[in-house]
Amino acid sequence: MPAAPNIPLGVRSVGRDELLKGVSIVSCHKNFTQLFWSVAGAGSFLREGRWYEQTPGSIFCYEPDSIHELTVKSDKWCYCWISFDHKHALNWLRDFDIKPGTQDMGACPESLFIEIADALQGCTLEGECRAAQLAYSLLLKASQQTHSSRPESLPSRFKALLDQRFTDPNLSLNTLSEELGVHRSTLTRQFSATYGMKPSSYLHNQRVQRGLNLLRSNKNQIQEIAHAAGFQDPNYFARAVRKATGLSPKEFQLS
């Protein structure tokens, strides 16, 4: 068992493999999220009946409860890998625009994989927290490299707008869908598929979290805090706070 089981990006394991031509790993069921990053050579992964070719700089992600199967295509195939077993790990990868399947990410940052392995030695809480920090850096590096070489996806553009403007009480999903030039239902479907929740729920959660932070940090009137968090109706804000905390805004402010 991990020393810190509740870290959403907690690293289960990490490693580096060098496989020779003709080697295959067949039908191995794994119940965790695993990311592979090719260093040299070529190989392929099987997912849902389709083979995904891997070359240096490409990554492949298996979602939890999937069957892992791979084969070597060159004289030698080298890759680094990292696995996460928290139930929300796949959502973290999706937030970095990393999805099940193959993507081209550029040169593998082998030094980061080595640092993560060093951090996990000893199975300590401090080491696992350090490994989680390094894993975040790893995913951030992958995200930066892939975004520099291809257009930003529609869901990620939509999420960025929500993150920038959620405190505007007049912001609506219809307004953003018009700005992006797509139908609201299309935007909702793609966002939900990418992030695992409806955009309306994401917007609401962002506003509630901002409201709770403001209640903690200042003594302004509840109506002012509600508006600053993006709520038009202070009464609706009060109901949202009570649902999230079991307390009224004033009780939470004074707690």
Rank of each mutant, 00 (worst) to 15 (best):
A193L: 04
T71A: 12
F252E: 07
G22Y: 11
S248H: 08
S111R: 10
A89G: 12
S192L: 12
K141A: 08
W51C: 06
G57Y: 12
C123E: 15
S148H: 07
E224G: 03
A3W: 01
S38P: 13
G181N: 07
P249E: 02
S255F: 08
E48H: 13
A42W: 05
L171I: 08
Y79G: 01
Y136H: 12
T175A: 11
Q164V: 10
A132M: 10
E152M: 07
H227R: 14
Q121S: 10
E128F: 12
M197W: 03
R165K: 05
G57L: 13
K243Q: 13
L112I: 12
A244Y: 00
F84I: 07
L161F: 08
T188P: 02
R94E: 05
G106H: 06
R50Y: 09
A117N: 10
E115F: 14
H86Q: 04
E179Q: 15
M105H: 05
F158R: 01
T194R: 09
F36P: 01
A132I: 12
L171R: 03
D233V: 00
V26H: 11
E224D: 10
R189C: 02
L176E: 08
Q221G: 04
F45L: 12
D17Q: 13
L247K: 09
Q253H: 01
Q221D: 09
E53H: 14
G10R: 12
D85Y: 12
W51V: 13
A240T: 06
A226H: 01
Q144N: 03
M197N: 01
G246P: 07
C108P: 06
S172Y: 03
E18A: 15
Y62C: 03
A3D: 12
R94C: 01
